[in-house]
């Protein structure tokens, strides 16, 4: 029982990270109908930026904020400079462009920072906390806390600010949005910027666990795909729930199904993706998309 609860809590912590990347994917998917395959690598790259800032003597939280600002500029700029000109290009072209971005970020990070793994500090204390019969890891609690805080902020932004309302309007009906004077293209760039920030936070949270290296997001990305697929690409809330579910699923299958262990962890995610697409392609909370014929 104690292992079970411990596994669930640590699953929630990694789940928070998956939820964040999944949310980033969904933010972009909803506004542009595009899956950003470079989302994980962008998060990795911004985490390296934070590492550079820390190395330059910044404190943890200033570096955190700095990395988020950098991420915003990166996402915003990419949308304006790289994605925007291909607005009317077909899906395949955009998939290829984001794959191109994936390789560029991966290799430029390797180029600048080398492929040797680097430890990354955690802002949370290391000493375990005892709560009743449970021994909790502050790292896990911290990650869950940061993730939930970020999700709450995003929810507030979308539901109680004018800009958030405008962004929801663009997702819902871009043509009508133009007709009320919303500058739709800027909203899309803003969406990319926000998605990059959400990803950056996930990167900063995961780096202490997996160490910093250019390929650190590969496993996270596949789980984020699974989370978004499970929750539904058309539902931000669904993607978040999907993320937590995947985090717990990963830990439980790893602990209790010996066939899987930790060695087939990525295959579990692949299986989830394939199964969800087969059984309920819109995911648990998604709406069926209107298909163009």
């Amino acid at each position: 029982m104690q292992t079970f609860v411990a596994q669930v809590i640590s699953g929630l912590s990694t789940g928070g990270i998956y939820a964040s990347i999944a949310l980033a994917l969904v933010l972009i998917y909803q506004s542009t109908g595009l899956v950003n395959f470079a989302q994980g690598e962008m998060a990795m790259f911004t985490t390296y930026m934070a590492w550079s800032m820390l190395n330059a003597g910044w404190g943890y939280w200033p570096a955190f904020v700095g990395a988020c600002l950098f991420a915003f500029a990166l996402g915003f700029g990419l949308e304006r400079l790289v994605i925007r000109p291909l607005e009317t290009a077909p899906e395949l072209a955009l998939v290829i462009v984001t794959i191109g971005l994936l390789t560029i970020f991966n290799s430029v990070a390797g180029w600048i920072y080398t492929y040797t793994i680097k430890p990354f500090p955690s802002p949370f204390p290391a000493a375990p906390i005892k709560v009743g019969f449970m021994v909790l890891n502050p790292q896990d609690l911290g990650v869950v806390g940061v993730t939930l805080l970020m999700l709450a902020l995003i929810y507030l932004f979308f539901h109680s600010t004018r800009l958030g309302l405008a962004m929801r309007a663009v997702v819902e009906n871009p043509v009508s949005s133009r007709l009320v004077g919303i500058r739709v293209s800027w909203m899309l760039a803003l969406g990319w910027g926000m998605a990059a920030v959400v990803g950056a936070v996930a990167g900063l949270m995961v780096a202490p666990l997996v160490f910093l290296e250019p390929n650190m997001m590969g496993g996270v990305l596949i789980y984020a795909f699974a989370s978004a697929t499970l929750g539904g690409f058309s539902s931000a809330g669904g993607a978040v729930v999907g993320g937590f579910v995947m985090g717990i699923l990963e830990n439980l299958t790893g602990t209790y199904i010996t066939l899987v262990g930790t060695k087939l962890k990525l295959t579990v995610a692949l299986a989830v993706i394939v199964l969800v697409l087969l059984i309920k392609p819109t995911g648990l909370f998604g709406r069926a998309a209107v298909r163009r014929v």
């Binding site: 819902e172 949005s177 007709l179 009320v180």
Partner: peptide, 19 residues
């Protein structure tokens, strides 16, 4: 009509005054 179908009536009206 171009209604924002998933938003509330109030939100639709607010969007009208967006600018």
């Amino acid at each position: 009509r171009g209604t924002f179908a998933n938003l509330t009536v109030f939100e639709n009206l607010l969007l009208g005054a967006y600018t």
